[in-house]
Design a protein around this nucleic acid. Structure first.
Lengths: 329, 329
DNA sequence: TTGTAGGCGTTATCAT
DNA sequence: ATGATAACGCCTACAA
């Protein structure tokens, strides 16, 4: 059996109550006894029993992180940062993969969230109604990378990301830019379209519609882009941008000579491909850290909506616009 | 306050004990009452309090997964599978990222593992002594992707992976193959070298030494490989293989025409680059699932060491050997 | 088959 | 400043 608080108390010659206080409310105990108890606890290798503590305090020391797909580099980066920050705050992280399934997502929040001190929810496509439903767990829920349902949130500045990307292309002489959007219902995709609509640049934006946010989606979008005569393509994320790169190569279109390509996310793979990918870098680690801080900080009344800045990472996939529209050969 | 077992019992007109049994030992309760209680519980949205249950049973319903780096696609794939399997087994997963730090690794196992029903440890480079030390938590510990310290384990057949890779290259006519190894102390790297030493093929293996298992490590290895006149390079993992591809391109060496490249892992990125990467595919999902099954199954006496088969995924980065050794230009 | 009662390890309350 | 005592929610002998 593990060493218990009573063992420590007995060894230190004090009551269990004093031992408890010496460890978790030190200022309430006389200095000598406090140090005595703490030393004895250390020597005995005492570790408080989380279950017993939770039973009385109602706090488990666990945070629950729900993501659509742990294998997606975007979410694994967030998960890593969340885990690290939570640890320094004395919390463990229970991770749940919702497998891109909104129903499972709701179940997970209900089951796991109920036993955690708070829930970090990455749910790009859940409707506001479902969000509100889900958020009725008795625990604080914080949205990561989206806003909605009046819940606290941490997101990135998607509109500015789009602005930076298009401004970069405009400066390179591009005047026709195609946008390959993400899945229907994606909150961040909606914000990016807001950004495109609000541009005050002399640039024609061609909407290529909604696509699966994966390699194949980019492949499909590439053909559409070429048909529009655009000299640059902006995609919903980096995986799609890779699909565009691949398809362009297949069709004999050179990147960046004939067509420039800009992605979103700055996934690790962005620097591993040729040409390396110009992309809107998301502060994923900061996103995760901020989420934890906000969830654990005592809510001072109003609901926080933090928006983090993004930064365009210019690499080899963008170059000055060609004098003539690209022609596949 | 959440609905408690007593609430259910009261609503169903039975004692708390009967309610408890109806839910967690159904065969001990008369059918009618059992169904009544279960229905009432469902209607009230009863969820057992894990802390209370743990306090008495000693089981928390949590598994602890420790990995060196959550952002590494290898481990995020394992984590995803572990999470999914654990969930179906009624367990939540506490994930801990050790940040490639053996000291932190040990701490995490000690702290988090002590409050979990078991620990899944991915620790490619920890020494056997440290493993034994770490494993002295009061909970079952299972090693993932390595063996050691007499602990139960699930690993993949690294030796066979090497064999398959070299056999493939041999069949393509390659007779000089360079091996770019992973970090010193890596268990799987050691097994792969065993595999290389045990080959019964007419192939000369050139050892390029140990490298960081990342893109840059591959870049460095590429130059070494060219200096040996090898016509094929086998790398410790896919990230390194990508580094080799990049460096070969920079130096004007064509892949696969001049040099063939084979990676290890079959990371998602393997199909996203050009040329797509021939690589030894690891059954990562199966690795995670098997690990959970083994950890939760009642140990039937002897310590299990499961070895999962690997499979060579042949793609575009390997081709018949050139008639002359590659010459950078 | 069902109910009663005790206790798991900790913190909070209330005396002292 | 300290100690005795009562919870927290659940499970499980034991008794009926």
């Amino acid at each position: 059996m593990a060493v218990t608080l009573r063992d420590v108390a007995r060894a230190a010659g004090v009551s269990a109550a004093t031992a408890s206080r010496a460890l978790s409310a030190p200022h309430l105990v006389a200095p000598e006894r406090r140090e005595l108890v703490r030393r004895v606890a250390r020597d005995l290798g005492y570790q408080p029993n989380r279950a017993a503590r939770e039973l009385i305090t109602g706090r488990s020391g666990h945070l629950c992180l729900v993501v659509p797909d742990l294998e997606n580099p975007f979410f694994s980066a967030v998960a890593k940062a969340v885990q690290a920050r939570a640890r320094t705050a004395g919390h463990a992280v229970v991770v749940a993969d919702a497998e891109e399934d909104p129903v499972l997502e709701a179940e997970l929040v209900a089951q796991l969230g109920a036993q955690a001190d708070g829930v970090l929810l990455c749910s790009p496509r859940m409707s506001a109604d479902d969000l509100a439903q889900v958020a009725s767990v008795g625990r604080p829920v914080l949205l990561v990378n989206r806003e909605g349902a009046g819940l606290p949130s941490v997101a990135v500045d998607n509109r500015d990301g789009v602005r930076q990307a298009v401004r970069h292309l405009h400066a390179l002489g591009h005047r026709r830019v195609a946008y390959a959007g993400g899945p229907v219902g994606s909150w961040s995709d909606a914000r990016r379209r807001d950004g495109l609509a609000a541009l005050d640049l002399d640039v024609e934006v061609l909407d290529l519609g909604a696509h699966a946010p994966v390699f194949a989606g980019g492949v499909a979008a590439a053909d559409l882009a070429l048909a529009t005569g655009a000299t640059a393509v902006l995609t919903h994320n980096d995986l799609m941008a890779l699909g565009v790169l691949d398809r362009m190569r297949t069709r004999g279109v050179r990147v960046p000579d004939d067509v420039s390509v800009v992605g979103f996310d700055d996934a690790p793979v962005a620097t591993l491909v040729t040409p390396s990918l110009t992309t809107v870098a998301m502060p994923l680690a900061r996103l995760g850290r901020t989420a934890v801080d906000l969830l654990l900080s005592p809510g001072d009344g109003d609901v926080p909506h933090v928006v983090l800045p993004v930064e365009l990472a210019v690499r080899a996939s963008t170059a000055p616009a060609p004098s003539h529209p690209p022609e596949p050969r």
